[in-house]
Design a binder for these strands. Structure first.
Length: 557
RNA sequence: UGGGGCGUAGCCAAGUGGUAAGGCAUCGGGUUUUGAUCCCGUGUACCGCAGGUUCGAAUCCUGCCGCCCCAGCCA
């Protein structure tokens, strides 16, 4: 499905919304994307982003970006900034709809007091350990805390003192009074406020008690008049609690929560906790390492945002959790790049060729014309300088060619793309027997790569002029994990791919490649899609491989 | 022996009682100055299993099996 018929998307969530609209339930559809600013956005978030913003767009509604900042010990302004940047890059506008759960701290506090006054919440002085043992287990009911029947007045007083900073962290907490027998552990008197003597990125030292997710989320939705609160499957059994608060509080609206399955991608991990560990342990260089499935990593790798949007759109939205093959993602990326990327030539592992019958005069200027993008005439042509000494890819030559190898070999003729037909006359080796140079002859009549007499050449090779090309470093990225599902045979960290990065430092680029900035991905013909790294300079060019071209030849051999 | 979900080809996924869409992958073939792209073709899916209802069930009922999530003062 392409983005053009986005409106045709049909999944259980959109079905529910259409039903609600038909039943005239809402004036306007409102959704929200609620990241916790404790890490960078990854492609799994992109699914939620496209769903929430997409739904709002399709039904002429609204989608708020709401930072769920209720845990100051884990959150940071740098993440808030990074999330905004990534969201904009992905192509979504939220400037007028930014919210923070911390905007509602005052209201949330009042609601907590409302709950106390209704006898539906109490201050507990159980320690975290005690609370755990009182909670029971999956199969045994919990037992009630001794504090459970504290007088309302005392609860009010204690809660006020919690707020005033009279207690240490962990000494007191505010709990909802629900049901210690419930089969749903979330309903066994969940903590709704805890003490944290921590500085908050936005409210600074105004508070030393902070609401828990369950107490903050639904009510924030209600404040924002969210109609459809879309979250992932693991929150399914939080829904009764979500509804319990809305039921028992004087809230302004009644949002509904719906859950869909989160995205799992093979050969990578989509967990902020684990991603952070990869960084901390030095397996990658940071959140924006090109191997990371983060939006920042994918961007640096050269993946266009359109491809990400299209990819998550193709997956659909369901409640069944599966694992999507990485190759599916790569294919979507190739599909976009194939039509948009300009073509250039670069040689990764150079093998020098001297064309013996080519003019030796250094003043001789031989300019050839090359198409920039066969899929887009508007990209026009460029001029390529040819010369007597060129580089081709080392593996485009075989001294003893196998039957189906149709590239260069002794006595064989191939075409140099946009240039000439050449024949290999001699193979030159060093003392160890390594091939270090080829001596060839070219056919002047084949200029442009044409075959003047109609003779067939099976191979067309990319090349670069030895004297005119620019030396560069090229990073080839492979899968971050060797296992499709990291950790399926033990510790996930053991499955980190030791060769996820191959850095080649003796590569040669056609000069015009240096004109491309890191936000433009181009194709190196016959190799793949590449883009300039963030740290690339004119003096020290560095290019990252976004994704290789499909290679059915390599596959067979 | 608790609660909540999910189970349609290798992967994603339509389907909502009338006799199994589509995409990706795979494998063939054609075109090609990128072994890319493009174009054609290619799958016996015991619709988790077993019963039942029905003229007819992936779709309804019952029972079973498998997988995922939940015992943070994380989100």
């Amino acid at each position: 499905m392409t983005e053009k018929n986005l409106s045709q998307k049909n999944d259980f969530i959109r079905e529910i919304i259409r039903g609600d609209i038909a039943a005239n339930l809402h004036e306007k559809i409102v959704t929200r994307f609620p990241p916790e600013p404790n890490g960078y956005l990854h492609i799994g978030h992109a699914k939620s982003i496209c769903l929430n913003f997409g739904v709002a767009q399709e039904f002429q509604g609204l989608c708020n970006l709401r930072f769920d900042d209720t845990n100051p010990t884990k959150e940071d302004q740098i993440y808030i900034d990074a999330i905004k940047f990534d969201l904009t890059w992905l192509g979504f506008n939220f400037e007028n709809n930014i919210r923070y759960t911390s905007d509602y701290f005052e209201q949330l506090y009042d609601w907590a007091i409302e709950l106390i006054n209704k006898g539906l919440a109490y201050v507990d002085d159980l320690s975290p350990d005690e609370m755990r043992s009182y909670r029971g287990t999956l199969t045994e009911p919990g037992i009630e805390s001794p504090s459970r029947n504290r007088e309302i007045a005392e609860n009010l007083d204690l809660f006020e003192r919690m707020k005033n900073g009279e207690f240490e962290e962990g000494k007191m907490s505010l709990r909802a009074k629900i049901d210690m027998q419930s089969g749903n552990l979330n309903l066994r008197d969940p903590v709704i406020y805890r003490i944290m003597h921590a500085n908050h990125p936005r409210t600074n030292n105004n508070w030393c008690i902070y609401p828990m997710y369950d107490f903050g989320h639904g009510q924030s939705d209600a404040i924002e008049n969210v109609t459809h609160s879309l979250c992932t499957l693991e929150f399914e059994d939080h829904r009764p609690l979500y509804e319990w608060f809305l039921e028992n509080l004087s809230i302004p609206s009644k949002p509904k929560q719906y859950e869909f399955s989160r995205l799992n991608l093979s050969h990578t991990i989509l967990s902020k906790r684990r991603l952070l560990k990869l960084i901390e342990c030095g397996y990658v260089t940071g959140w924006n390492d090109p191997r990371m499935p983060t939006l920042a990593g994918l961007r640096r790798r050269g993946v266009p945002p359109e491809a990400i949007r299209d990819f998550v759109g193709r997956l659909g939205v369901t409640k069944s959790d599966g694992i999507v093959e990485m190759s599916y993602f790569e294919n979507t990326v190739r599909e976009h790049l194939n039509v948009t990327a300009q073509r250039r030539m670069a040689v990764l592992n150079p093998l020098k060729i001297v064309i013996e019958n080519y003019p030796e005069d250094p003043q001789f200027k031989d300019e050839l014309e090359a198409t920039n993008n066969p899929n887009n005439e508007d990209d026009g042509f460029r001029r390529l300088l040819f010369s007597r000494e060129i580089y081709i890819e080392h593996n485009d030559f075989m001294e003893n060619p196998t039957k189906k190898f149709f590239r260069l070999g002794p006595g064989r003729e191939v075409r140099l793309r946009y240039a000439y037909l050449i024949i290999c006359k001699e193979v030159i080796k060093d003392k160890k027997g390594n091939i270090i140079e080829l001596r060839c002859h070219y056919d002047p009549a084949s200029r442009g790569g044409n075959s003047p007499d109609g003779r067939k050449v099976k191979g067309t090779l990319h090349w670069v002029s030895a004297n005119h090309s620019k030396k560069a470093t090229i990073n080839l990225y492979n899968e971050l994990f060797t296992e499709a599902i990291p950790g399926s045979n033990g510790d996930w960290i053991e499955d980190v791919n030791k060769t996820s990065l191959e850095s080649l430092t003796n590569c040669f680029l056609e000069p015009s490649i240096l004109d491309f900035k890191s936000n433009t991905t181009i194709q190196f013909e016959r190799l793949g899609y590449f883009c300039a790294d963030l740290n690339s300079t004119q003096e020290n060019p560095i290019f990252n491989r976004t994704v290789p071209l499909r290679d059915t030849w390599a596959k067979k051999t």
